[in-house]
């Protein structure tokens, strides 16, 4: 292994890691927003909203994320959606992971004992008050871990934006392979940096999970 080369190029990879992190954070936030809206739609009293929520989830989960991303970035301009690569990456990946988060959030909400809603409604709370004050606080505890799994998948999924030339960890590895012809070293650096990001995030999730459990 060419350690000297690795030492020489790794600062560029650190920069790329920052892009991966930025991409992950924005994607996660958009995904959570889509997931919350999706779950609200799936649990709505209105069948039209339930249908829209179900269609969103099955369309996204039924097709490869790469196709969705390409459709948005390359196909978008044809129907008047012009996005730079980074924005297309955030929107494409965020909407994608949002479908998985929809199911995570919905699952946590329906896992809360029905007796909890009944007790709240019996006291006179409205449907929304019961949801906000009784069900969601309990569901939130249940969803930390599974959302952590979604976020883990999302971080690894950011590699999908390399083909649309977002200068993140995977793209950077490919670019340096073009000039150094050392794929092993380059992918090792990228892989190691992904691992650090995922390790730290995983610990963050575990910490949050412990905290909400004690409270």
């Amino acid at each position: 292994m060419d350690f000297e080369l690795m030492l020489r190029v790794y600062p560029f990879f650190l920069k790329a890691a920052l892009v991966t992190i930025e991409l992950s954070v924005l994607t996660a936030l958009l995904g959570l927003a889509c997931g919350a809206l999706g779950a609200a739609a799936r649990l709505s009293r209105l069948s039209a909203l339930r249908w829209i929520g179900a269609a969103y989830v099955s369309l996204i989960r039924g097709t490869p994320a790469l196709i969705q991303l390409f459709l948005l970035y390359f196909g978008g301009p044809q129907i008047g959606i012009q996005l730079d690569a980074f924005s297309a990456g955030v929107i494409g990946l965020g909407v994608n992971i949002g479908a998985y988060m929809t199911e995570t959030i919905r699952g946590a909400i329906v896992a809360v004992d029905k007796g909890q809603t009944e007790a709240a409604r019996t006291l006179g709370l409205s449907r929304w008050q019961a949801m906000r004050k009784v069900v969601i606080p309990q569901a939130a505890r249940l969803m930390v871990r599974p959302l952590g799994v979604n976020i883990n998948a999302l971080i690894k999924g950011t590699a999908l934006v390399a083909p649309i030339s977002v200068i993140e960890l995977t793209y950077t590895a490919q670019r340096y392979i073009g000039s150094t012809y050392k794929p092993f070293e380059m992918f090792m650096i990228s892989g190691a940096l992904y691992m650090v990001i995922i390790y730290v995030t995983g610990h963050g999730v575990a910490w949050l999970d412990r905290r909400v459990r004690i409270a």
Partner: peptide
């Protein structure tokens, strides 16, 4: 919602809110 305020109900399985203290359960 208004009517239910006037009708107290007690369940077999208590259905206390586990995320709230006894005080929080009563004052909610």
């Amino acid at each position: 919602n208004q009517v239910r305020q006037d009708i107290g109900m007690v369940f077999q399985h208590f259905n206390l809110f586990p995320h709230l203290s006894v005080r929080g359960n009563i004052t909610l």
